[in-house]
C-alpha cells in the first residue's frame, strides 16, 4: 500500500543556503505523525514544498503513490492535501462560517458560480455550520474572524482546512501562540479527527506532540536526524542534546 504522502531525497536550496537536504519521509495512511526540530531546521520550508508553495530543487513528492512534484498547489488540494498555517492565514474581515464555506465551496466546485446567491447553496452552508459545531465554534459562526480571541482563530484555521475534507492534513504549529491553558482544546479537536485522515503535525509544544503522535521525525539543519516512536525519540540521548535540551528531561 502506498504511503499517504511520501518524499524521496527532497532538496531545496536558496542560493548557497541548503534548507532541505535529501529528506526522505513517509506519512503512512491514517498515521498521526509529528515533525519536530529546532527553529530554522527547515520544517516550514518542508511543508511549503509538500503543498506546492515552493518547488524543490531536486527530489520527488508522492501523494497517495502519485508523483505530484510537478503539480501546483491547486492540483494537490484537489487530490486531498490540506494545510493550516503557523501564523493565522484567514479571511479576517469575513464571518467565521464564510471562512469555512469558501473552502467547502471550492471543494464542491460551487465557488465559480455567478448567478444564484451564495446563501441558496444550502449544502455548503449546512456542512460549514455542522463542521463548526463539531469544533465547538457554532456560537461564533456569524462573528467576524478578526474579532475572535486568538485561540479560537487557531481553531478556525483548522476548520477551514477540514472544509476541504482532506485525506492528508498538514498542521503547521496548530497550538502556536495559544496559551497553555487553552491548548487542550486544540488537542481535543485533533483527537476527534477521522481515523482514516493522515496527519502530519509540526509542533513545538512537546506535551501535545507526545500525546498526539504515533511516530516522530526529528529534523535538524534541513535533514532527517532521527525517526521513531515517541518512546524511542524520548529515549534518544542525541535528540535530547540537539533539541529537547533541558526542556524535557
Amino acid at each position: 500500500m502506498p504511503a499517504a504522502l511520501e518524499t524521496r531525497r527532497l532538496c531545496k536550496s536558496f542560493g548557497a543556503l541548503m534548507v532541505a537536504d535529501q529528506i526522505s519521509f513517509r506519512l503512512e495512511s491514517g498515521a498521526r505523525h509529528a515533525l519536530i526540530g529546532p527553529n530554522g531546521a527547515g520544517k516550514t520550508t518542508f511543508v511549503n514544498m509538500l503543498t506546492g508553495r515552493f518547488s524543490p530543487t531536486s527530489g520527488a513528492i508522492l501523494l497517495g503513490g502519485e508523483d505530484v512534484t510537478a503539480l501546483g498547489q491547486l492540483a494537490r488540494v484537489k487530490r486531498g492535501l490540506a494545510r493550516t498555517f503557523q501564523i493565522n492565514t484567514l479571511f479576517r474581515n469575513v464571518s467565521v462560517v464564510d471562512n469555512v464555506a469558501f473552502a467547502v465551496a471550492e471543494r464542491e466546485g460551487v465557488a465559480r458560480r455567478m448567478f444564484r446567491p451564495a446563501g441558496s447553496y444550502h449544502a455548503v452552508v449546512d456542512e460549514s455550520m455542522a463542521l463548526l459545531d463539531t469544533l465547538g465554534l457554532a456560537q461564533d459562526a456569524r462573528a467576524v474572524v478578526a474579532g475572535l480571541p486568538y485561540g479560537k482563530q487557531r481553531l478556525v484555521e483548522i476548520a477551514v482546512a477540514l472544509g476541504l475534507r482532506p485525506r492528508v492534513l498538514l498542521l503547521d504549529e496548530p497550538a502556536a501562540g495559544v496559551p497553555t491553558s487553552e491548548s487542550h482544546r486544540i488537542l481535543d479537536v485533533l483527537d476527534a479527527l477521522p481515523k482514516d485522515m493522515s496527519i502530519l503535525i509540526i509542533e513545538h509544544d512537546m506535551d501535545l506532540v507526545f500525546r498526539f503522535a504515533q511516530r516522530i521525525t526529528v529534523l535538524a539543519q534541513g535533514a532527517v536526524f532521527l525517526e521513531g516512536t515517541p518512546a524511542e525519540i524520548a529515549a534518544d540521548k542525541r535528540v535530547r542534546e540537539v533539541y529537547l535540551g533541558e526542556r524535557h528531561v
Partner: peptide
Amino acid sequence: RLVYSPFGASLTGVRENNVRMHAIGAP
C-alpha cells in the same frame, strides 16, 4: 447577482487573503 453569488464571495476571498485562497485550492 454577481456580488451575492459564490463567485462574488470568492472574489472577496481573493481580496482578503490571497495565500489562503491558494491553500483552499481556488484558481
